[in-house]
């Protein structure tokens, strides 16, 4: 009886310990990226969306690099969620960070509304909170009477400049289609609006606009259908590069590579390759590697001088074309 209980709890113990040991061995286990610090060094938590997404993993890398260059100034804890839509987990991470007594939280919210209450708890606990990448909803911030500085790109203007570049190689009246991101996300809306403004200003006709949920494969199916439904389509504007890749494949399969142009957003490496090869016209770079760093810098400033007024900071978005890429 006793032995079997022991055996049972023993195996449970082992099954918990083995994965922990594996995690411990991993060279860049992301939870602590610096040695134990002197007590006066502030600890900043960077809470990201999915680290499985290239954009956010680049962002985290940039932050870690910044920390290792400024290791005297602060300590960094990086956390991400498994799935971009796992809001509950992201909120839980923020609660855990409050409990872990970090001094500041820099957060890329997975949802612009649902994260507000938990961030309010963080503020009440006396933490500095900085919002990066995806802007928190103004109305809800006001309703909770909360002010959180935002550091991030203007997605609308970025998408507009991509659209304007595309318009230069089209004729007024040409038919175009838009592949949108997940509709509930602020970025997706902003990029769609930017594309729409650019197309409207240049007199293009948007004949179709559907969400492919940021995904390559879904974008491929939908773009193929768009090409069939609108044989005269001249361009597809994708709200991120992953969807642009899917659209490119659909265009290639339909044998319309010369007739239909593609633009994207994010400047991931696969898109750069496609732009160099002339399969894609343009994308936008919002300097993901620097985004978290800007947020951390603002958090440090607010920690040093709590009375300074937190101000929003717009980060640059650059148009990327074959001409602007290094050969």
């Amino acid at each position: 009886m006793f032995l079997s209980t022991f055996a049972r709890s023993g195996s449970l113990f082992l099954s918990i310990c083995i994965p922990l040991a594996i995690v411990g061995c991993q060279p860049n286990a992301s939870n602590t990226s610096s040695p134990p610090a002197s007590p006066d060094k502030p600890k900043i938590a960077l809470v990201m969306k999915s680290l499985a997404n290239e954009f956010f993993s680049t962002m985290a890398e940039g932050a870690k690099q910044h920390q290792s260059q400024n290791s005297q100034q602060y300590e960094l804890v990086v956390n991400g969620i498994k799935d971009e839509r796992d809001l509950a987990r992201q909120a839980a991470i923020i609660d855990e960070m409050i409990a872990a007594k970090v001094q500041a939280i820099v957060v890329a919210p997975a949802d612009s509304k649902a994260l507000v209450p938990v961030l309010r708890r963080a503020k009440l606990a006396g933490l500095v909170v900085v919002n990066i990448d995806n802007k928190l909803d103004e109305e809800i911030l006001n309703a909770e009477s909360l002010s959180v500085p935002f550091v991030g790109p203007n997605n609308l203007l970025g998408a507009k400049s991509v659209g304007q570049h595309l318009a230069n190689s089209l004729k007024p009246g040409d038919q175009v289609a838009v592949l949108e991101g997940i509709r509930t996300s602020f970025n997706a809306t902003q990029r769609r609006l930017g594309f729409e403004q650019a197309m409207k200003d240049a007199g293009m006709q948007i004949v179709d606009s559907q969400s492919a949920n940021w995904e390559t494969n879904q974008a491929n199916t939908i773009a193929a259908s768009m090409l069939n439904a609108h044989p005269d389509l001249k361009a597809i504007l994708a709200a991120n590069d992953s969807m642009a890749l899917g659209a490119m494949a659909a265009i290639k399969a339909a044998n319309k590579t010369d007739a239909v142009q593609v633009v994207g957003f994010d400047n991931i490496s696969a898109a750069q390759e496609a732009i160099r090869q002339g399969k894609m016209l343009a994308t936008a770079d919002q300097h993901g590697d620097q985004l978290a760093v800007y947020g951390i810098e603002l958090a440090l400033k607010l920690l040093q001088d709590p009375k300074s007024l937190p101000e929003d900071r717009e980060t640059p978005v650059d148009l990327i074309t074959a001409g602007s890429l290094p050969k």
């Binding site: 680290l51 499985a52 997404n53 290239e54 993993s57 390559t216 992953s242 890749l245 290639k252 399969a253 044998n255 991931i268 490496s269 696969a270 390759e273 496609a274």
Partner: peptide
């Protein structure tokens, strides 16, 4: 966690 571009060396497999 990066999307990798493999280019057209595989293209024949799914080109019509």
């Amino acid at each position: 966690s990066n999307t990798k571009y493999v280019g057209s060396s595989l293209g024949w497999f799914s080109d019509p």
